[in-house]
Design a protein around this nucleic acid. Structure first.
Length: 360
DNA sequence: CATGCGTGGTC
DNA sequence: TGACCAAGCAT
């Protein structure tokens, strides 16, 4: 069946207007008070949507306040140093979000006269603005009836419309976008989209949904058939690979500590860290020799001062933290430098290395 | 379409 | 403790 036919089939016999009315009424009464809901400033909406990608509201709130204080508008963010932006993002994760956001903001300032585009093509062309974020900004900041399909929306609609497609597949998101195009309120698309997400966050939760409190229970096919905990269908992820490392806290004679900047692309791009010895490849006894080859310094290892684990989505670093002292040699490494302990505020670190620093 | 990309919370 | 989850995007 074609997708258009599928959409018509699914929505045949579904009371869109009544559903939309009940959802919006509930949202207006029960929505949480959140800092990015104070007004419709497209910049604030944009920043919040980027921060909220794969990240809980409670985690985002303090970052949002600090970020808006430091970068109150497009121009301020466009003119900031990238390291400053990353420092404000420190601990939030998915750091390419921050770099893409700043790049896109610079593009808006230069190419769009400092006005966030209100049309899908220009907006969706910005770095880091995908189908969801595009729809969220268009509907929330500009009251445009565009779908904003995230994990919440797919969960809620999987249940309400009893859809059994695997929501981890991209084609499934497109199905939901077409469904939302048919259902969305044209009077208040912002409340409709936010209501769908708010419902997913507060009522229609993944494990134990509060169906008895649900404002659209009477519209829900899954509830009707007792299938609410069977939906949505979501294929499972692979489990992470573990990699062992030695993490070195190395002091020189001045008491400065050795740090290095990660590559500009990939994992934790452009962040700073303490030197890490991959024990997968390097024999423990040959660490000083390996280290001399990489950094030009002869070091003497001290006692182990703890274990730190860094769990990523797709891998796990298991790091043994070891203090070390420089015996001789000169630092010869393109991305490494000595950091005075009081300068730590100048360098964005991943969380695992912030923890390591506390052992220093 | 699958994979890489963080982190903290929950059960 | 491990598995799963959370307002996704780029490649």
């Amino acid at each position: 069946m074609k997708r258009t036919d599928r959409v018509n089939f699914i929505l045949n016999d579904f009371d869109k207007d009544s559903y939309s009315r009940d959802l919006i009424k509930w949202f207006k009464e029960e929505q949480r008070i959140l800092p990015w809901r104070e007004n419709q400033d497209p910049y604030r909406v944009w920043v919040s949507e980027i921060m909220l990608q794969q990240t809980k509201v409670d985690t985002v709130i303090p970052y949002f306040h600090h970020f808006l204080e430091k970068f109150p508008d497009l121009k301020t963010l466009a003119e900031a140093n990238e390291q400053e932006v990353l420092k404000a993002w420190e601990g939030l994760g998915y750091y390419s979000r921050a770099r893409n956001l700043q790049n896109a903001v610079r593009e808006v300032v230069e190419e769009y006269n400092g006005v966030v585009p209100a049309n899908p093509v220009d907006l969706g062309g910005l770095k880091g603005v995908g189908p969801y974020t595009k729809g969220a900004i268009l509907s929330i900041a500009y009251d445009t009836p565009e779908p904003a399909v995230d994990g919440n929306v797919m969960r809620v609609l999987s249940r309400v419309l009893r859809i059994e497609e695997d929501i981890s597949k991209q084609s499934t998101r497109k199905l939901f976008e077409e469904l939302v195009r048919e259902i969305i309120s044209h009077e208040d698309p912002s409340s409709f989209n936010q209501g769908l997400m708010e419902l997913g966050a507060l009522i229609c939760t993944p494990k134990t949904p509060s169906c008895m409190l649900c404002p659209v229970q009477s519209h829900c096919r899954a509830f009707d058939e007792g299938l609410e905990t069977e939906l949505p269908v979501k294929s499972s992820k692979k489990k992470q690979k573990k990699s062992p490392y030695l993490l070195l806290l190395i002091q020189n004679e001045k008491g400065d500590i050795l740090i290095e900047q990660r590559p500009e692309d990939g994992l934790l791009a452009s962040l700073w860290q303490y030197p890490m010895v991959p024990l997968q490849d390097i024999d423990r006894d040959s660490v000083p020799h390996w280290f001399y080859g990489e950094y030009g310094l002869n070091i003497e290892l001290g006692e182990s001062s703890g274990q730190i684990k860094h769990v990523f989505s797709h891998l796990i670093w298991e790091m043994e933290v070891v203090k070390a002292k420089v015996v001789s040699g000169n630092l010869d490494h393109g991305r490494a430098k000595w950091m005075n302990n009081s300068d730590i505020e100048d360098y964005p670190f991943p969380v695992s290395h912030q923890k390591a620093h506390s052992l220093y």
